[in-house]
């Protein structure tokens, strides 16, 4: 009798925790990592905690070289932390998985393939048995969404920087990844193109919801795009501050000029200064 009760309670707890975990797509728990260099270990992450719920957009900002890119490689399963845990869907990341999409500052398109064939690339790895026509249809659908429908058969070198980055975003989304990892994808673009692509991100999210982790140096970008902005401290990085941007999409670009946004930006600016170890106006962050 008592045993049955305990079992039921256990099962109930298990079900609850699975549901709880599913809601939190990515969990990073007490992650510490150091690179081994000739001069000795170089700590980059120190007791980092971060969790991203399903469907949310999380932006990570922090001083240069604070280990933000290391974070992306940990989530992608390309690296493993010295201690702590990275979990996807409540499951510990032990190897790369097919459910991740990545885009970088450098669009890294393959020069010998057309734009369409570039976008298809992840499908060749993730779904090798999928019919070619089906792959192409999927890629065309995305390219049309980002306004590149007339450039499918062009080579990357024939496109502008902004168009190449659009193609790169299509490639990172073509296999419908659970999590999109964006490592400063808009960093090398001019200001106007960047704002175009910010708006495009909202459009893409509205059409095909995804969970995203964005690494950026641009505070306006983080406020405009993210549901949650995480400020990392200087190296070794730890979670210093979390700001919830409570504003359901799609967001007009002029939301950046609202009093609320200016206030958010000021808060983030202060936190960055603390992270850089100077001019702390607001003490008392973790």
């Amino acid at each position: 009798m008592r045993r049955a009760y305990r079992a039921r309670r256990f099962l109930h707890g298990l079900a609850e925790s699975v549901e709880e975990r599913m809601r939190k797509l990515i969990e990073i728990e007490n992650v510490t990592h150091a690179y081994r260099t000739v001069a000795g270990p170089l700590p980059v992450l120190d007791n980092l905690n971060l969790s991203i719920p399903q469907g949310k957009f999380c932006a990570v900002v922090g001083p240069s070289g604070c280990g933000k890119s290391t974070l992306t490689r940990l989530i992608a399963g390309l690296m493993f932390p010295d201690s702590g845990e990275v979990r996807l869907h409540g499951e510990r990341v032990r190897s790369p998985r097919k459910t991740v999409g990545m885009a970088f500052q450098n669009p890294v398109l393959l020069e010998w393939r057309t734009i369409l064939q570039n976008v298809i690339l992840p499908l060749e790895i993730v779904a090798p048995t999928m019919a070619k026509a089906q792959k192409e249809a999927r890629a065309r659908e995305l390219l049309a969404m980002v306004g590149l429908e007339d450039f499918e058969d062009k080579r990357p070198s024939e496109l502008s920087g902004g168009m190449r980055q659009r193609a790169s975003l299509c490639r990172s989304l073509v296999h419908k990844p659970d999590i999109l990892i964006l490592d400063e994808p808009f960093g090398a673009l001019d200001a106007f193109t960047r704002e175009d692509l910010w708006q495009l991100m909202h459009k893409l999210r509205a059409e095909e919801p995804f969970t995203a982790l964005l690494i950026t140096h641009d505070l306006r970008e983080s406020v405009y795009l993210a549901d949650q902005v995480v400020v990392l401290s200087g190296r070794p990085a730890t979670t210093q501050f979390v700001l919830d941007i409570d504003m359901p999409g799609p967001r007009p670009i002029d939301m950046l000029y609202s009093t609320q946004s200016v206030d958010w930006l000021a808060q983030l600016r202060d936190q960055i200064e603390i992270a850089q170890g100077r001019g702390a106006k607001t003490e008392g962050a973790i």
């Binding site: 390309l78 097919k98 890294v108 690339l121 992840p122 790895i125």
Partner: peptide
């Protein structure tokens, strides 16, 4: 980055070599 776009999908070293 070229390596990572395929490695993050679980592609083997050989696939990365052959495709990229």
């Amino acid at each position: 980055e070229y390596r990572d776009i395929l490695r993050s999908l679980g592609a083997s070293r050989f696939t990365v070599f052959w495709k990229i």
